[in-house]
Nucleic acid binder design. Sequence first.
DNA 1: TCACCAATGTAACACCGCTATAGCCAGGGC
DNA 2: GCCCTGGCTATAGCGGTGTTACATTGGTGA
Lengths: 207, 207
Amino acid sequence: MPAKVTALRTRDRESEATRRAILDAAEQLLATVGEQGLSIREVCARAGVTAPTIYHHFGDKAALVARVVDDCFADFASAFAHRAAPHDPVEALRWAFDRYVEYGLGHPTHYRLMFGNRPSRPSPAGLASYDGLRRRVMAIADAGRLAPPLEDATAAFWAAVHGVTSLVISEFWSPDNAAIALVRDAMVDQLITPKPVPARRTKGASK
Amino acid sequence: MPAKVTALRTRDRESEATRRAILDAAEQLLATVGEQGLSIREVCARAGVTAPTIYHHFGDKAALVARVVDDCFADFASAFAHRAAPHDPVEALRWAFDRYVEYGLGHPTHYRLMFGNRPSRPSPAGLASYDGLRRRVMAIADAGRLAPPLEDATAAFWAAVHGVTSLVISEFWSPDNAAIALVRDAMVDQLITPKPVPARRTKGASK
DNA sequence: TCACCAATGTAACACCGCTATAGCCAGGGC
DNA sequence: GCCCTGGCTATAGCGGTGTTACATTGGTGA
């Protein structure tokens, strides 16, 4: 088996290079003009290929975008991985909240792509991201400090952080708005057990 | 001055009827296929007009959509007006939270149009809606029970309710999820002063 | 009555996502 | 060494989109 495994055949290499060129062009365009403004023809021009090539490799405009979004999720995950979280699980959750908002502010178009309001597109990478948040909440539960059930707590925290990030991105808020910390601390305080008292409030939860 | 004021001239009446036909067709289409799927030509077919008529009256596809969105805000506001809120301002805020989510669940496409993540479209009707929320929070402040500054409290509450509604609409949650009440109560509890103490919170607000 | 002008239609432009078809050419069997 | 196969790419085009220049009509104010 001479060069069958060690090196890619020249055809495969060229094909892979074409895929990369297309993905790079698409990502660059998505970051600037968004999914709405993304045109296959413009991707073609930037990548130096023609339309059938794109459709051969990715099948669809939506699939091409989904592929780029997956890369965005990877980038998003690394934004967490590259920084050290506090050891205390509660402080780590607060920290994650800030990183989340920070990322959305730094990559508004990517954020919109990943968590935009297009009807339920449960990408695997998105679910993995959600699972990362669940693990952080679980760390609090493991420390015996989580008040509500795990799933409820995770979902509630995710909703709050998403609401805040959405508003920051839409420039409704300035990034240093005190309301951000207000939402963050409201959620964290509600999630952890108070001090000694188990839980007192029973106000009507369902409508 | 015979029929100058008492009755509209026939031309104006016809013109207004045309506008209404276009708006009705557009609203119906927007509710079913969303802004993305809305086609001027389809609106033309349903309203029984041709394209230049639409452009003459509304100027733009975006302007037409914006006009429909304004009507949506009016509908949204009436969803609040037609129901009696609790007298207690804190309970009224909790109630507003539920009505908000309820409306988003009942009119997901309209909600996406109104509060979707398109980069900052500060429609007057949208600002009026936000102002309605601010008044509710101000009622709590007037009762001497609001802990944070008014603007921060309003913004935080709005972010939380928007995050929850977004997730409910995207079918990430079921409408009776316990997490909804969790976010609601977390925000309300954080907004009101604990017991008798005027204002206490000093937790790290800026990052 | 009559000229004006708002309102509407005709036809077209430039662009879009997408694809049927055909050609190129590296790779592998003979 | 040759030819054939098949993956990859380009040409050209389809039906659709938002938008607009231009022509036309018919109420309306003078």
